[in-house]
Design a protein around this nucleic acid. Structure first.
Lengths: 305, 305
DNA sequence: ATCAGTTTTATACCGGCAGTACAAAAGTAG
DNA sequence: CTACTTTTGTACTGCCGGTATAAAACTGAT
């Protein structure tokens, strides 16, 4: 049922990689994936919506595996950030995401355009929050500029490095080089005090829902980090419990409330931990699930009527 | 005759600005410019070729007015470079060049794609040669990386600054900011000795003809600069003569050989100038015209037969 | 096994697109 | 007036994304 739909997305993706999006006709997709036109338009309302589904799948899995690299790691460690960027650039390359992106970015379909713009903004916002962790709160005013410039440098460098050295070349040195550059750049901007974009303006980028989502995640990470700091390395069980919570929330759609509640229960009984922080963590998570339940109910009601 | 063709390009440009390239049909262009389909395909072999003609016209005029800013100026002056970049970014914006560019950059038409890639490489090469003049020969190994990163930073900054402040905002601060950043970046790379792309690889970018053209221009500028250095400010007539030559070669297709020869004659009689340098300049220019004549004759012969 | 409800298929169809073909008309120069 | 080129108008081809619909296949509950 849903397998079939996924299969169509997969087959279409192959065709898009081989020939590009524009050059792939719906007829091609039908023949290649062995379905009829009616079924296709039963799954997707248009060719563009198929593309959106593809992007969502690819970016979703990319984001989770990128975030997984951070579990149980020092969030201020630059080498982890480099690994994260390498991962993303490699999946970009493997799936020809950048080409696909460029090909449809200037499109007449306003929905598709907005979706892609949102994706770019999400990426910048992610780099910004990582920069906050890497450079520290005191550099905040210069970190939105930094995130924007970092992505500009990175993409341009990868592009021309690939032209010069063949597209199969390892892009790891490019990532290292680009990260080194942005470090000096941010420090330079902080020294001279020059600023182009204020980080506050990002608030206007995301819809409230995913914004509070981001804030929640950041608070969660902070609480967990604080608790971990109070532990020494021998208390493995406590660390494992904390890591589990973080991991579970990473797969946001399928976080299992009952499991997390039981883990929280264990944490409350854990005398190695600062119980005040545990309490605030507990409250934070209870709030989150309350909000999720609320968000789930409202649409259901409106559907039933 | 040719006026009509230019008129079609102009009308098409207007439509492209309003609706975008893909969304403008040939039928639209026919109606808007008041010609018939037959005539259109008499002028352009395809819609894409019309776009190439448009790009050539726009980029051509942009490059000459950008180069004109340098006449009689200190080529190492950073403020002139900033003015040049501002000029280019403003015409980009006015003509929606970047949007048009992005819209067709990933295209199935290999000719169009190659043409656009050449355009990008030309731009990087120009920035590189300007950086050579601004940063000095000793920074050469880091200036191709610098040029690539500068354009990445600049375009990204302009993009997000325009999103945040409306597309009608003055981009001058963005240009200043980006230039400041690239200065520290180049010095940083030079200090640490990190290098991604070697400037030599640019040789593989351009066809031989425009490459020797670039080399000629650079030599010309150097000779003229040397001669000027030997003068003091009161010798206006000599300076004017030198500036005239530089100006005349800037409009490369229509440089008038007889005029330049006569000016060279005056220079040879000018006792304010270092006659050895004048002689080498003379030889350089004679070589150039010989090459141009050769290049003109060969195609003519093949046409007549 | 039957039957109702859904999904899938096959096929014909629509309007729009870029590009081709070609004969008639208009313009141009000697 | 003539010979030649340019322009025009129109009809045509083949492909595209998307719609419509009736027949066929599948599904699950009784």
């Amino acid at each position: 049922m849903n397998d079939r739909k996924q299969h169509v997305i997969k087959m279409a993706h192959q065709l898009f990689i081989e020939r590009g999006f524009q050059a792939t006709s719906i007829q091609d997709i039908l023949e290649y994936s062995g379905i009829s036109k009616g079924t296709f338009y039963n799954y997707f309302s248009s060719k563009n919506e198929l593309l959106i589904a593809l992007f969502k799948a690819l970016y979703g899995s990319m984001e989770t595996s990128r975030d997984e690299l951070l579990i149980g790691q020092d969030r201020a460690d630059l080498t982890i950030f480099i690994k994260q960027i390498e991962l993303q650039m490699n999946t970009n390359k493997k799936n020809k995401l950048i080409t696909l992106f460029e090909e449809v970015f200037v499109s007449n379909d306003e929905d598709l355009k907005q979706f892609l713009k949102q994706g770019q903004k999400r990426m910048i916002q992610w780099v910004f929050t990582r920069f906050l962790e890497l450079f520290g709160e005191e550099k905040r005013p210069y970190l939105l500029d930094g995130a924007i410039m970092f992505l500009g440098i990175l993409h341009h460098n990868v592009k021309y490095y690939s032209i010069a050295n063949g597209s199969s070349v390892d892009i790891s040195p490019v990532v290292h080089y680009s990260v080194h550059r942005i470090v000096t750049l941010v420090n330079d901007a902080a020294n001279t005090g020059e600023q182009l974009n204020k980080p506050e303006q990002m608030k206007t980028w995301l819809p409230d829902v995913s914004q509070t989502e981001e804030i929640f995640k950041e608070k969660l990470y902070q609480s967990i980090a604080m608790l971990k700091n109070g532990l020494n390395e021998s208390e493995i069980r406590s660390i494992e419990l904390l890591d589990f919570i973080q991991d579970e929330f990473l797969h946001s759609k399928k976080s299992r409330e009952f499991l997390i509640e039981s883990v929280l229960c264990s944490l409350k009984a854990d005398k190695n931990l600062d119980q005040q922080t545990v309490a605030s963590l507990d409250e934070l998570i209870k709030d989150y699930f309350a909000r999720v339940a609320e968000a789930c109910n409202l649409p259901n009601v409106s559907i039933k009527q």
